[in-house]
Design a protein around this nucleic acid. Structure first.
Lengths: 158, 158
DNA sequence: TCCTTATTGCGACTGGTTTCCATTACCAAC
DNA sequence: GTTGGTAATGGAAACCAGTCGCAATAAGGA
């Protein structure tokens, strides 16, 4: 029952331990932040989080977020999403399996995928360079099936 | 003589064409920017570029850089260096073939590599999704050989 | 419950980037 | 070469995300 299923509660425990180890305190705001972060399975910005929490009736300030997200990162519960276009975005780590993205330049849609061949090729590269990988991020930009179809109808466009 | 060897001149031509196509003008400042960018084979920030140009006696303003670098990016001559830690950095593209990055979380070093298996795997993915790729970007974060060696000396660390 | 000290909110502040607008300079047409 | 329409530019002001200082608040161990 206290298994992996309850990510928010697990994360709360982990964070509580992390705080205690460093003589910091668990507060209402911190609890709310953790809960929110692990309830939603998507990337988020400071502002996303702020708005979501305010909508839930939490009265914390942005300053508090700016002060606490670095702690969450340090604790390993969340991480900044690497990659230029995802500047200022975070994602939680527990229960968020790895995936990469196809991003459509026309409609902006992001398609998630994962591919073992890709992972294998990456492992090979890392081995070749004596590099110990921790995580990676691959984005492929281009045109999705839907937009290509639409395009082919009026090929003169552009 | 007018071969690939002269990157700055080639880039200047390319950019001139790019500008003309959009009804924009080639100016002294733009020429100076291109020349500088293609003379130096290294990542650079707005400020690096500004200082370098000023040292060369150019009297352009930062505003001009902020206005023109996006054009260079659009023209494909330079690109923003991906990766969180290299926020705000650019690199030129001509004579800088496609590559991906291994980024060390400890020392920050970026190792460039390219790998056909990886490209192949990506092509397969795209085919599977009916996606037409235009470009991609892969970053692998982890620990480089050097830092791992240093670490293994004091294995209790972490 | 008390008391120490971490946490918080607010407003001021910062550094990087963008915008405004008056002036300058391209460059195509004469 | 001169002219005219319009893009480009510089400098200052505005903007914005993120940070800091400080007084008030609230964890949580004694």
């Amino acid at each position: 029952m206290n298994s992996k299923k309850n990510a928010p509660a697990d994360a709360l425990d982990t964070f509580a331990r992390f705080l205690q180890d460093r003589g910091l305190r668990m507060t209402r705001d911190r609890r709310a932040i953790i809960r929110q972060v692990f309830e939603v399975h998507a990337h988020f910005t400071m502002d996303d989080l702020f708005i979501a929490l305010r909508l839930k009736g939490e009265r914390l300030s942005k300053t508090t977020l700016y002060r606490n997200l670095p702690l969450l990162v340090e604790s390993g519960l969340i991480r900044r999403v690497p990659g230029e276009s995802s500047d200022g975005r975070f994602e939680h780590v527990l229960g968020h399996p790895h995936h990469d993205h196809l991003i459509c330049l026309e409609c902006g849609r992001e398609i998630e995928f994962s591919c073992t061949d890709l992972e294998t090729a990456q492992d090979n590269i890392c081995r070749r360079y004596g590099f110990h990988p921790v995580w990676h991020r691959l984005g492929i930009w281009g045109y999705c099936r839907r937009c290509r179809a639409r395009r082919s109808v009026k090929p003169k466009e552009r």
